[in-house]
Amino acid sequence: MRARVSSLTPDECKAIWHGHGHLLRRRCRMILRDDALGDDALQETFVKLLRYGGEYRNAASPLRFLYRVADRCCFELLERRSSRREDAPPDDWHGFAAPGVDPALRGAVLGFLHALSPEERQLAVLVFVDGLSQGEAAEEIGVSRVTVNKRVQALRERAERALRTPRREDG
């Protein structure tokens, strides 16, 4: 049997745009560190919601569901972009940060996000952007707490190295 993929109606997507669009926009721009590219990802996010976003209706956390879709779109763009030789250095992202987030560490991690595996990318965003605890992140991506501990430690060390190095770390 094939799972049936349900879509959202345009009106439902408009409601999401109205209530959550600003959060999705700032997230896409932050992850991609480029406003124009972030807006591209935002549009792609809504295209995906229109086609396949029916699960949103039953999501335990609607925002988490939307962030998952947006993250996927951002990561797809990152993969395309990292292979392009003409790619310009990404713009600095000047958004304000939540009190529990270290903006410098977050910026350093986002700077090498494109060089990470898909699972590492998701973990990096959950921990260094969303500020989830390692236990929460482990639950979200479905791996053990021990695995998350190791990976987060490696990400943190890499970010700290990048912050100590004047040159941008590009993986």
């Binding site: 209530g19 959550h20 959060l23 925002l63 009190p99 529990g100 921990v127 969303d130 605890s133 929460e136």
Partner: peptide
């Protein structure tokens, strides 16, 4: 972040802002 101190995570604050209980 795990060392975020006593603050809720950024995600929890954003969810709260978005109307989630």
């Amino acid at each position: 972040m795990s060392d975020a101190g006593s603050h809720p995570s950024a995600f929890r604050l954003e969810a709260l802002h978005a109307g989630e209980a």
